[in-house]
Design a protein around this nucleic acid. Structure first.
Lengths: 226, 226
DNA sequence: CGCACGGGCGACCAGCGGACGGTGAGCTT
DNA sequence: AAGCTCACCGTCCGCTGGTCGCCCGTGCG
């Protein structure tokens, strides 16, 4: 099922003391020095949370903006290219996607602010940015204006992508693969499921089957659960 | 390194009592009934070993021929296509290669004579058959005439492939990927290593470096270890 | 028949793609 | 200062791709 847990589930945390050593932050410049705990040898342990920003807008306070988020995807692409060049030189298997190996390489290269869970979490947001920058920008402005949080904006990014998939024969994998910047990212499971569910609903309407799924026009994800 | 073992190595076997149930054998028809143990309910537990046969030749006795071997690769391709169709229908990730999932599907479909270690073992032999059928046929005839065993023939299949790679800029992955029947198979590690080693040697000769590697003409793998 | 050869394939492993949810940063009151 | 919201990312898990070598089928003397 969509949300089926694995066989067993245990998540016991240990304490966390990090000793990495880097300073690079990237995109935005909110490196305010008013933090009283930032003097000794302790580096920032977590990135500032993202907030919904308009295109070109720099996040204020202890936040990062969405331009910075998308910049992280470009950085990952550059790290992938480096990993590919090294692999080719050594005659080893050459990755075509951003794999664990690439995340490890990024970390080793000092980009400790890049990590797999974060990048995978926002892949579909980056996809929208790649495939329909105008639409992506409009969505950012709308969600910023409404004062929505990042989670709500992130959820909202699914719907326009499903609409795009509908126009392209529902093949979200083909859509990702045919875009040069997007093709290196795995299609998120949830996006694939949404496309499949909406395609099934569209087929049902066209067939005239008598099941669930009201008469939603092109592009409506409507009542589908996330 | 080329032959580096994993961290630990343990291989303790249990007894083997199988209870599978199928009858299909495939290609060749050497289903001779002179085996006195073949009457009750015990099915064949292992496939007959391969022998080097000429194109079109049916293996005699309790052996399988190379046409049958190559036929197995075609069957795997058909199983992959089925797995892909099912995945697409269910909106799940669609494999582009012959994966564990495909081997599992083949077994479930009654083709219990197909298994991963065997198919991976002979991939490069199949590759030669796909890329240069004339050359492959000539090699088979030569090794059959000399009375060589399957292992020797299998080893000999590497060299002509390296020669082909040399002509195509040493990119063995591109060679596999651009052939419709071959593109669904992973490039064997050993073949990739041989191509890399030979390319390095060729570059060294062209550069005039003073290292190992005598003046071997085009296509000689020569002294390289397998 | 018994023995030696050689190769089929069960079973193993490091590491992968994928996911969850506990800390704890950060804002509001 | 205290509280409480929410999201970052450490850590887990079912498998994958890849491999080794045991076991036994097989042919020969």
């Amino acid at each position: 099922g969509v949300k089926a847990k694995h066989g067993v589930q245990r998540r016991i945390k240990k304490g966390r003391i990090e000793s990495s050593s880097h300073a690079a932050h990237g995109g935005d410049d909110n490196e305010s020095e008013d933090d009283p705990d930032n003097g000794g040898g302790a580096e920032r342990q977590r990135e500032h949370p993202f907030i919904v920003t308009e295109p070109g807008e720099v996040a204020r306070g202890k936040k990062n903006g969405l331009d910075y988020l998308f910049h992280l995807y470009e950085q990952c692409r550059e790290f992938l290219v480096q990993v590919q060049n090294i692999a080719k030189e050594k005659g080893e298997k050459c990755p075509t996607k951003v794999t664990n190996q690439v995340f490890r390489f990024a970390k080793k290269s000092g980009a400790s602010y890049i990590n797999k869970p974060k990048m995978r979490h926002y892949v579909h947001c980056y996809a929208l940015h790649c495939l329909d920058e105008e639409g992506s920008n409009a969505l950012r402005r709308a969600y910023k204006e409404r004062g929505e949080n990042v989670g709500a904006w992130r959820q909202a990014c699914y719907k326009p992508l499903v609409t795009i998939a509908a126009r392209q024969g529902w093949d979200i994998d083909a859509i990702f693969n045919s875009h040069p910047r997007l093709s290196i990212w795995y299609v998120p499971t949830k996006l694939r499921q949404l496309c499949h569910a909406e395609r099934s609903a569209a087929v049902a309407v066209a067939t005239g089957s008598t099941t669930v799924g009201g008469g939603n026009d092109a592009g409506g994800v409507g009542h589908l659960l996330f």
